Amino acid sequence: MSNQLKQFLLSQLAACHDEEGWFVPLHKSLDGLTAKDALWKEDLNSNSIWGIVSHLTFWNQRYLHRFLEKPLSEENIDNTETFSEPEHESMEVEWFSEVVKTLAVMSEWREAIKLCDPVKLMGPVRENSDEPWLNTIAHINIHNAYHIGQIVQIRKVQGTWNINV
């Protein structure tokens, strides 16, 4: 049963990262997007795609470090701060670097799940917690899918979505 749980999570991670299925994966949702378009906002209360990608990178990396038992910064971070973006229209190289970083974190998650002892998936996310890693990783995948949908919607509104993608 535990190998089935790993395969379940790996399937979800692949769907969010790079395997096309019921929805567009992250890599496809970002394909061909310029830095200028990544910074575009429909209005002042909206997030940019750049901000969403920064947010995904932050939370995916933070939980990956916890899963791998790497040290975490102890700072208290307001979730709105994770939607960071440059103050100026950034160069394409910086945008490309941001995309590469978030896709790399997703690849690292897949590798971590492949290599983990399946028993770890039933273990607690943190000390004094009843929530197992299995639930947390499934929620991370749902969170990723939610924001991927936002990215596609933003691209449709701004006119940069290629319907043939």
Rank of each mutant, 00 (worst) to 15 (best):
P86N: 15
L39V: 09
I49L: 09
N79Y: 04
V53W: 00
E85G: 05
A35V: 02
F58H: 15
G51N: 12
P71F: 08
R66G: 06
W50V: 10
A38T: 05
E94K: 04
L39Y: 07
N76G: 02
N45P: 00
G51F: 10
S29Y: 00
A35Q: 03
F96T: 12
E85N: 05
S90L: 07
T34D: 03
F96Y: 03
K36S: 06
S90K: 01
T34H: 02
Y63V: 04
N45D: 11
A38F: 12
L68K: 09
M91H: 11
D31I: 02
A35P: 03
T57W: 05
N79R: 07
F58C: 12
L68N: 05
S90C: 11
L30I: 06
V53D: 10
R62F: 14
D31T: 06
I77N: 03
T80K: 13
S73R: 14
T82H: 05
L72I: 05
R66D: 15
R66Q: 15
G32H: 02
D43E: 14
R62L: 12
S48E: 07
F67I: 14
W59P: 05
D43H: 07
K36M: 03
R66N: 14
R62M: 12
E74S: 10
E81G: 02
F67Q: 11
E42R: 12
E69K: 15
T82P: 13
S90F: 00
L68W: 01
V53A: 15
S90I: 04
E74N: 01
L64Y: 04
D78E: 14
E81H: 10
N47F: 07
G51L: 06
E87M: 13
F83V: 09
A35I: 02
E85M: 06
F96C: 04
F58G: 12
W40N: 13
L68C: 13
I77R: 02
L72R: 07
N76S: 08
D43P: 04
N45M: 07
H88L: 11
L64C: 09
S48W: 01
Y63S: 05
S29W: 02
H55F: 05
H88V: 15
L68G: 13
D37C: 05
E42L: 06
A35G: 07
M91P: 01
D43K: 09
F67H: 12
E74H: 10
S73N: 15
E69Y: 15
T80E: 13
W95N: 00
E87V: 10
R66W: 06
T80P: 01
S54W: 09
P71R: 09
N45A: 11
K36T: 11
S48P: 01
E69C: 15
E74Y: 11
G51M: 04
F96R: 11
F67M: 10
H55N: 07
L68Y: 03
W95R: 01
V53N: 13
N60A: 00
R62W: 12
E69F: 13
R62D: 08
E42V: 13
L72C: 10
S54Y: 02
P86I: 08
H55G: 10
T57C: 11
S97F: 08
N47T: 03
T80R: 10
Q61M: 15
S46D: 13
H55R: 04
E87A: 15
A38Y: 02
L39F: 07
D37G: 00
G32D: 02
A35F: 00
L33I: 00
L44K: 13
G51D: 13
A38W: 04
N76A: 10
